[in-house]
Simulated assay, not measured.
Amino acid sequence: MAEHYSSFDRSGTKWLLQRVTAAFLVVVLAFHFFLLHFVNHAADVTFAGTSARMSTWTYFSLMVLFLLAATFHGVNGVHNAIVHRDGIDGWKQTAVTAVLVVASLIMVVQGLRTALVWTNLF
């Protein structure tokens, strides 16, 4: 039988968060596809409709959580692949980590700015 390989340390918090965010993303993506592709067809999605959905605290909160979970899940996966799988360390690891942290911050800030534009909450 083949040996199981994972570059994640299974005792770490990042390993657990990677799995939790994956499960969350599957559920939220299913909700997204159901709502925006079956309930409302693509041709029916308008700025006003999106603004109305985003103006409710529940939908807005879900989308912000989706943004945070997707950003963490994606960046953590890329970091794991580059650092642990490829085995880099030292200044290269520091540089990769710094670039990914900056990219994450930019993505989250821009995502929040975009989400706030769609709302009438603030």
Rank of each mutant, 00 (worst) to 15 (best):
A2I: 07
S6E: 11
F8P: 00
S11F: 07
T13A: 13
L17P: 05
A22R: 07
A23Y: 03
F24P: 05
F24K: 07
F24S: 07
F24Q: 09
V26Y: 03
V26R: 02
V28D: 09
V28S: 11
L29Q: 10
L36K: 03
H37G: 14
H37S: 08
F38M: 12
V39K: 13
A42R: 11
A43P: 01
D44M: 12
D44I: 05
T46P: 02
G49F: 05
G49M: 07
M54R: 05
M54N: 10
Y59E: 09
Y59L: 04
F60M: 12
M63A: 13
V64Y: 07
V64L: 15
L67N: 08
L68H: 05
H73M: 04
H73Q: 09
H84W: 05
G87L: 03
D89F: 05
G90F: 01
W91F: 12
Q93T: 00
T94E: 10
T97L: 03
V101M: 09
A103V: 07
A103E: 00
L105N: 08
I106A: 12
I106N: 02
M107E: 05
G111K: 08
T114D: 07
V117G: 03
W118L: 13
W118N: 11
T119F: 00
T119P: 00
L121S: 01
L121R: 15
